[in-house]
Write a protein that binds this DNA or RNA. Structure first.
Lengths: 136, 136
DNA sequence: AAAAACTGTAACAAAAAATATTACAATTAA
DNA sequence: TTAATTGTAATATTTTTTGTTACAGTTTTT
């Protein structure tokens, strides 16, 4: 994960929730997040793929939430943007001739799985609606 | 976190544990991990700073565990290599003029804290000794 | 005392990853 | 028909990560 995809996606979802169903343009979203509109559109593509949002093309188009904010939990959002593991393994190629090196990746994997599940469980305690409620 | 610091550190610690107190050179470690020896020495510097290992300079020098493997839990190791947050914020500078943008970082932070604590709790269930036991 | 094998560390280079920019076809609304 | 917008690709730029080189300092061995 590019490590900022989660905050970007959550930011988008929070803004769409705020809009209460009105369509919001990627231009507007990128203005609040302060990143490039094309990146926003890419994230939206992913959010759409996962059923969180829908978009409308053409003039006056934009995006809006595809489900109720109380039916989107943050663990799901995390999983939608997750690409690599939280704990590492960018390009981990230990020496296969070393008895430790040869086996370590499988052990790391199981460690990562457990840790990541704990992370997801923590995030899943909150829905988008809960999160949005914190803004005054 | 550079996302591979955790696996590198854990790899180092596992190898040092395997050595049962004998000093191990950064050259040897880097051979098993398959990364540059200078990177290994940098990680060792950090592990040393956190009291996990000690090093011996000069000919025949190297590193060894500074405490018993059963007194090192993986949550501590994670925290020793942790630099940025697991969930993001590389350079998150939302628009302060937007009511959502203005507040989102503080809410993300508290979310991250909870999630990361859950991650650490999961990792802390295992010590280095437990981890090393998995290698055959 | 000299040589050899290390660590510690800095400075720089290269590679990889993330982010931004530009461009434009397709769509829709006014 | 024009304007505003999405979708998407291609490319460029920036940032981050990783590797390399270099060398002073330390310790052991001869």
């Amino acid at each position: 994960m590019s490590n900022s995809r989660f905050p970007i996606s959550l930011h988008i979802l929070t803004l769409l929730n705020e809009a209460k169903g009105a369509v919001v343009s990627s231009e507007y979203l990128s203005g609040s997040i302060n990143i490039n509109p094309v990146l926003v559109r890419k994230e939206i593509m992913n959010l759409r793929k996962h059923g969180f949002v829908e978009s409308k093309e053409g003039k006056g188009g934009g995006s809006f939430l595809a489900k109720n904010a109380s039916d989107i939990n943050l663990g799901e959002v995390y999983q939608a943007v997750r690409s690599s593991n939280v704990l590492g393994q960018s390009k981990n190629e230990p020496n296969p001739k070393c008895p430790i090196g040869r086996q370590i990746n499988q052990h790391l994997d199981s460690l990562y799985n457990d840790a990541e599940n704990a992370l997801i469980a923590s995030l899943s305690k909150q829905t988008l609606a809960d999160f949005a409620l914190k803004f005054k």
